[in-house]
Design a protein around this nucleic acid. Structure first.
Lengths: 148, 148
DNA sequence: AGGAAAGCGTACCAACTTGGTCCGAATTTG
DNA sequence: CAAATTCGGACCAAGTTGGTACGCTTTCCT
């Protein structure tokens, strides 16, 4: 199973790319060219990111996108939430009521626990760490640049 | 966004139900009746669970399903993996190669880290803990969100 | 001031995945 | 031997998602 949708994946890639050039303001086509992603989809992703407050878009000629905050202030969870909405393990974790088998469902505390763990895992990594060359690695010995 | 698919959710519910009756061997219809889930879908879920080694199915008359292992030996991650396949944050985390923007992707170590955190969160909880009576807290009022 | 460039919003279409159903083959009990 | 019951596969419908296109607004440059 895949946790993140493809658009969310694209969103992280795009946001990471923007984090790598914090002062530049580039348009969607340039981001698409730099990330080798479909331009139309990149535009869609950037729109959602702008709507979520991750990036800010400048209109007009010589306009473009730019990160709305510092890269170390933006977590992956925010980027993902801007694309696909709030993170939830299952639908029981999202909707509060209406489950007619609530009595048969002693699993919700565990879902909440797992949900928090996932959110914490996605919220612990920031864009600055994503783009940083010396990111925090729990295992500094392993080399991860090559293909696994 | 929802992490687990609905079938995976059903699988956890079904497996938890089976964990609650470790010595009984019940058929798919009984499980569906007990869990208030669609019978056909429960049958499908049980088939995948059997294929994944979570439950064992006995054919013939008076057949039925039973947990293949002890409830404390089966984690949620296994159940989810039996339904929806191996857990991966994104497609980059699953497929080993073929990504033509590997050079533009310094994010994979972080994906691996997040992926491991998610897997650990899902792997830390077993079916025995799911069915355990100590954990169920019937408090449907407060819903905790992982606020960013 | 006008044209061009770029973002913004919406709408739309295609495709894949998912949810759900059904029937045949195998197997065990009575 | 027959009936009941299950597994295992194929099969179909529907929802969601990915992706694209178009019109509008805004801003800079000529």
């Amino acid at each position: 199973m895949i946790i993140l949708s493809r658009l969310a994946d694209y969103g992280v890639i795009v946001a990471t790319h923007l984090a790598g050039i914090p002062d530049r303001q580039v348009n969607a086509a340039a981001v698409a060219a730099a990330t080798r992603l479909p331009p139309a989809t990149v535009a869609k992703v950037l729109k959602r990111l702008a709507h979520g407050g991750i990036v800010t878009g400048a209109r007009g000629a010589t306009g473009g996108y730019r990160l709305a905050r510092a890269p170390e202030e933006i977590s992956i969870a925010e980027v993902v939430a801007a694309i696909d909405g709030e993170i939830g393990v299952t639908q029981c974790a999202s909707h509060v009521e209406g489950c007619d088998r609530t009595n048969f469902c002693p699993t919700r505390p565990h879902w909440a626990h797992i949900n928090r763990a996932v959110s914490q895992a996605l919220g612990a990594v920031t864009l600055a760490e994503m783009v940083g060359p010396d990111f925090l690695r729990p295992r500094p010995s392993s080399q991860v640049h090559a293909s696994p």
